[in-house]
Design a binder for these strands. Structure first.
Lengths: 229, 229
DNA sequence: TGACACACGATTGGATCCAATATCTACTGG
DNA sequence: CCAGTAGATATTGGATCCAATCGTGTGTCA
């Protein structure tokens, strides 16, 4: 249903029901249907799903590992609400880790991988809807890491994207489509470096891209603390 | 029982039984009682613990999030066996992330935090046993991050330490006590920078320390693939 | 003798029931 | 009228039972 579910996630290795519930909740959180701070009741999810509470419990553990929920004993799960400084540090972590991921990825990217990447970037540029932009931007970046075979690194990168998705959405919806052209220019530079299989340039463009995004985000403190109850 | 259990871990927020089982298994894995590649049977752990299989299942999910186990549908959990290149990349991740963690930590370190850190370093230098060295070195580094209030960052740093603990142990047991003096010298530089609250120096010394350790480890490919069945 | 198929045992996944804990509300006392 | 407390209700944690799946060993046939 959502664009997020079309991307590779590491939920393949769990029981069928748990995986389905996890997919459902993941989409709901990444789409913003469940807001930060909101509590997730096991019974409610189980009922909506026609399953027992047990797979829901497992699913919540999986999501916890992905940074999408947090868990407190006898109090249940809720979507974490991050402070501005926390999001800033997560962006600093991305700034340091994702260049490594793209360097690990580039040698293993096939020609069709790169074609798909270019196609997504073309779709981003043709698109004007800020909601779709969010999903496409996510898809673009995660696609650049397709060749990275280090599961540890990829699951952590996905986790960093997951935990800040809500704040990215809040940011693009208030900042409007203006900054999208800057992002597209930076994507083109990155795509070009990947097509040349130039790890050094790719690292440099990517870290700069993430750093500039972080600085932009820091100019909008109203994204944090405000909004949802 | 083991030194690992005396360090802060983020298992406080789960049911009591699950947390106890998770602690038990974590110690067993970090101590090497359960080797990489070894399967973990739910029933066996539950019996040894006098609990049902359910908290064991939850515990295995927690450990999975910590990078200590991996899970496959209908096949259960086992301790991951890493390739040499994977461990190398994990060290590169540490090299990039832990300097950030120490910078976030330093402003919030109390005087007693630093005293405790210095005390641990003194104990490392007085120690000659390679087994104890492993635990103390871990304690030293994780203590330097005590002031880091970004849970996302800390849980990932712990995960990186966890998943490579076995290979670190294999390395120190074959390399002997020779390199310990180099490590101690580097620890002293780092400790000094922390006492001066000099984030720039701390970052520099720490990333160099991790990089040199990674390069040393790469000289010993026999640590990987060999050993346990 | 080797390879494939079937069946049995072992192990994990899921459902239901019961216990423990937290949250919410109403009541009482100051 | 507000604060604190005790009871009721809602929600999570754990145990036990049953179903589904995987691995393995044996037997049979070419």
């Amino acid at each position: 249903m959502s664009a997020a579910s079309s991307l590779p996630v590491d939920t393949a290795a769990v029981g069928a029901a748990s995986a389905r519930v996890a997919d459902y909740l993941r989409d709901a959180i990444l789409n913003g249907d469940i807001a930060p701070g909101e509590r997730i009741r096991q019974e409610e999810v189980a009922a909506r799903f026609g399953a027992s509470r047990l797979p829901v419990r497992e699913a919540l553990r999986i999501l916890e590992a992905e940074g999408l929920t947090e868990h407190e004993a006898n109090k249940g799960a809720r979507v974490p609400r991050l402070q501005m400084h926390e999001v800033d540090v997560v962006y600093q972590m991305r700034e340091r880790l994702e260049p490594l991921a793209v360097t690990e990825s580039i040698p293993h990217l096939s020609a069709s991988d790169i074609d798909r990447l270019a196609a997504v970037q073309t779709r981003i540029e043709a698109n004007t809807d800020v909601g779709a932009f969010l999903a496409l931007d996510r898809e673009f970046h995660l696609l650049t890491y397709t060749g990275c075979q280090i599961e540890q690194l990829m699951s952590i990168v996905r986790r960093l994207w997951n935990s800040t998705q809500h704040y990215r959405r809040a940011y693009v919806s208030i900042s409007g489509p203006g900054r999208m052209w800057v992002v597209n220019a930076e994507h083109r530079l990155l795509l070009d470096a990947i097509e040349r299989r130039d790890e050094v340039d790719a690292e440099r463009f990517l870290s700069g891209h993430i750093r500039r995004t972080r600085i932009e985000l820091a100019k909008h403190p109203e994204v944090f603390e405000g909004g949802a109850t």
